[in-house]
Design a protein around this nucleic acid. Structure first.
Lengths: 342, 342
DNA sequence: AAAGCCTCCGAAAACCTTTTCGGAACGCCG
DNA sequence: CGGCGTTCCGAAAAGGTTTTCGGAGGCTTT
């Protein structure tokens, strides 16, 4: 029963070795270890002991070669550096890892050539499916190569509506943010957004404007587009206070922008949340908890998005492929910047 | 020459198909595609065309089964959420991806059971090697299972000195930080560190104290240990200014702590860098560039650490295994918090 | 006692590629 | 014209596992 630790360089034990040690054929050994019928309990026991003794671990390559399925998937991301791929990747890894799937990770660095190269490599390894994670929510061209396995696009949808894409609900996020501010009793809401070039920024604006209208309010000032950085938040907040001194809530395009806005409000002597409520998007922990007061933010549930993508891919493997764009709900995480901390 | 896009569900073309189309045997087709000798130019051409027409992609499983090497490695991390695994993972992915290696990503979530399970799965897939990425620089127990492939520990060294570990040079980082401050003409340097429970914090202190002594100076006040958060930086800076008002440089245990210190300095009316220089560690982009002024920090070169780990593993595959702990140099990235911006 | 059924096990094929080795065709030299 | 070297190609084995199918033996039934 003692497992002999395989010495470095020693060939790993094969099923043949196990069968020989147990005094049976490889066929019987296979059936015994896989819980198949037509094996007596005694034999099964002997085989199990032999396998344990040899620290036998079945060769997945041989198994995959035979079965036509490898139990592997490719996770193709465009920028690992980015904050958004990571939680998605975690969720996917989580959903797969719980089962019997292993994940190949590839980073294309935003380069189409490299992406094609990686896809080729993954197909050559006979992955059962692919998840393509984008770096922004803007649609991306579908994979160039002819792929004969299911593909799910996550975060960035595919430009081809026939593909299956899973994306965060930025419009809903904008809506939920405003609804929270309204629920807090705010009526003079301004919106300092992020980089207009990103659909994430525009979609959040769309949702928030709709919710403001539905609440019978109107936006204070115009939507201020800029960048995603703290510096923009600081500058935009300064201009906002100059023009609209009676603002009582600022919705910010991202947590970083919100950090900048908080800085300026503090310097101008506005109390948060008493005088002005502030909200961000993304719920980036280091931004929200480091802020004074802690920042209320809309969490895009990216990890759940990754899990959804993994589940969708799982279903598509073997069964028929889903189509179209699906969105994942987001949620408001309330902290001290909108509701005074008890 | 036109590649027929493989329809969904269609069996991928095999070498046999290519050989049949080209009118040769599989052996010849294999040799032709792999650039082996003993194939005429005309035949090679015919085979190449047949392969292109069928969009043939050799089955890596079959190849790996035969060769005994799969061209895959396992990347085992303990917490993907953490900021430190990611750049390492990127570096490794980078170094491998350039070659013919593919990377299996596994996140053990800090759970030993899950880790063992993942190691088993990876071994069953016959990876050629493993990189184990820790979540802190504190030593970690070596892999439990008997592993017959090379293993390289990255970031967190293995407790077993016989293993090969690659870690950041935190002592050197502390030293370099102080040397930079001294070079900037600072003489009254304080150190607000991070969580004392982490060897990263203690090592940085060790290095900085040594450098201060070498410069003929002495530390202003005591080393202040606390946490890694902004709030700690704010609080500690307040106490520091109360007790040591003539301090002219604050070395901080992390960029987050430094952000907090900067906030307090600003509120107390100290100018940075004119009155007080501030430095952090880790060079976390969102922390350094969002700060006012931008934060000088020591970059631990984690991506390079990942690349080193990948290279070391690559060398260990096939050749003899290295041993012991190797460190990766860090570097100071100078920004406005220590040198006034032009 | 013969026939039939059930239980268990083993031989062999299949998956796909690479490599080795033997064989065939051809040109050249004696 | 025979022998030999060169060049090219194909048959076959190997790698490890799973599945199918046939067969052997034991037990029950008539």
């Amino acid at each position: 029963m003692a497992r002999t630790p395989a010495p470095r360089g020693a060939r790993a034990a094969t099923l043949t070795d196990v069968a020989r040690l147990a005094g049976v054929s490889v066929a019987t050994a296979s059936k015994a270890l896989n819980g198949r019928n037509h094996v007596s309990a005694a034999t099964r026991q002997r085989v199990a002991e032999a396998a344990a003794q040899l620290a036998f671990s079945p060769n997945s390559l041989a198994r995959g070669l035979l079965a036509g399925r490898t139990g592997t998937v490719g996770l193709l991301t465009s920028d690992l550096v980015g904050r958004f791929s990571l939680p998605i990747l975690m969720g996917a890894e989580d959903a797969f890892g719980a089962g019997e799937m292993s994940v190949f990770l590839c980073d294309a660095r935003g380069d189409a050539i490299r992406e094609r190269h990686h896809v080729q490599a993954l197909l050559s390894r006979r992955v059962d499916g692919l998840i393509v994670v984008g770096s922004s929510t803007d649609p991306r061209p579908p994979l160039a190569a002819a792929v004969d396995v299911p593909v799910v696009y996550a975060y960035a949808p595919s430009e081809d509506p026939e593909d299956l894409s899973i994306v965060p609900d930025n419009v809903g996020a904008g809506r939920m943010a405003v609804e929270h501010l309204v629920a807090c009793g705010r009526t003079r809401i301004a919106h300092i957004s992020g980089d207009r070039g990103y659909s994430a920024a525009r979609d959040r604006v769309t949702g928030s404007l709709a919710a403001i209208e539905e609440a019978g309010l109107s936006l204070v000032g115009d939507v201020a587009y800029g960048s995603w950085e703290e510096g923009w938040g600081r500058a935009a907040a300064g201009m906002l206070l100059d023009r609209e001194p009676d603002v009582d809530a600022v919705l910010c395009g991202s947590d970083q922008v919100a950090r900048g806005v908080l800085d300026t409000l503090r310097e101008r002597g506005r109390r948060v949340p008493e005088d002005v409520a502030v909200m961000g998007f993304d719920d980036w922990e280091v931004m929200t908890t480091g802020a004074r007061p802690k920042l209320t933010s809309v969490d895009m549930n990216l990890e759940e998005l990754g899990r959804s993508a993994a589940r969708a891919l799982f279903e598509a493997i073997g069964a028929e492929h889903g189509r179209g764009v699906r969105t994942v709900q987001c949620r408001v995480v309330v902290r001290g910047s909108t509701v005074a901390e008890g």
